[in-house]
Amino acid sequence: MADTASAEPHAPPDQPRSPAPPLQRPPNTGVPGPPHPAGTLIGSVQRAMRLLESVAEHAYGAPAKQLARETGLALPTAYHLLRTLVHEGYLRRDKGLFFLGEAAERLGSSGAAQKRRSTVADTLAQWRDSIGVPVYYARYREGEIEIMCVSDTPGNPAVEEWADFRETAHAHAIGQCLLSQLDEDTRRDHLGRYPAQSITPYTVRDNHALLRRLERMRRMDPVLERQEYALGTVCAAIPITVGTTAATMAISLPAHHADRLLPAARELQNEVGRLLGSLAISISI
């Protein structure tokens, strides 16, 4: 028998080479790779935003063909996006022309309201620093007292709301000032829901006593309150009426600085009067 142990194996015949497999994406390991900003953008959103911007430039509306031309979009694409924007309320269509819709206008009004709030906050901060007291802005809306903005510092802190400001309008200068600006029916309606009651030894006792006090108030005089809401604190409020909005700017001081209350209130009133024209729109937020 031939010794086959040492024999070399025959090489297999040549086989046709199979094509290389397609490139595979690397597995998602959870580790972010290098940023690719363009790859994260959604083209349809970009195109829709360009259409909105284009419509906003036409106060009297624009047809789809014009909007497509201005945004560089194919007409079928523009039609599809316009129909979607109309459906969602961001655009409206009237006689073949497209206009901004209520949803887009709400976005714009929200931004404008934020700007007005910032204007009021900045102004209160200026008065806080120049007068050296906490400053409050409040208004009466839909039957409720609303504290819209407070500007204070650690050295001159605002009054702590230990009893709900909305339910204790009779006890603090802000509430009394706002109630004094209301007509009789609205005032009585408020006190019917939130009747006057003593919360400190200095608080007015009942609705009848409060109404008599409000009737004696002179229209543009500061409203002063001494420890009626919080012991150890005195407050003053300046009436502001813009259109149908009853509003007030107010200050507070520790009771041992009560001699400063009226002069500080007069100073605030002068500042409010000086800037009221520019603040008129902002304080109606």
Rank of each mutant, 00 (worst) to 15 (best):
L179F: 05
V159Y: 01
G39D: 15
P154I: 04
K65E: 13
A264D: 14
G30R: 08
P13T: 09
L85E: 04
R205A: 10
D189R: 07
Q114D: 05
Q66R: 06
Y137C: 07
P32R: 14
P35K: 03
R193C: 02
M249W: 00
V242R: 01
R213T: 03
T153G: 09
L51P: 10
N207W: 03
E88T: 14
Y90I: 01
P201L: 04
A246E: 06
A258Q: 07
Y137G: 11
D259C: 01
S252R: 03
Y136T: 09
H170L: 02
G61L: 10
A38N: 10
L191N: 05
G30C: 08
P239R: 02
I145H: 13
Y136N: 06
A246S: 15
D164A: 12
P9L: 09
T186W: 01
Y90N: 11
A59S: 13
M220E: 13
P19D: 12
I174R: 04
H87R: 07
G132L: 05
R83Q: 15
R274A: 10
V86S: 06
E160G: 08
V150Y: 01
Y79C: 04
A264H: 08
T241N: 12
L75M: 12
A250T: 04
Y79S: 09
E102I: 00
G61E: 08
G232D: 08
L231Q: 10
C149Y: 04
D183S: 03
L262T: 09
F99Q: 11
N270G: 15
R116E: 02
R187I: 05
T153F: 08
Y79H: 12
M1Y: 10
S18E: 11
D164H: 10
Y202E: 05
L23N: 08
E267G: 06
P13W: 13
P157S: 07
V133N: 03
R274M: 05
P34D: 06
R166P: 02
R212H: 14
E105T: 00
A68I: 13
R25L: 13
K95G: 06
M49W: 07
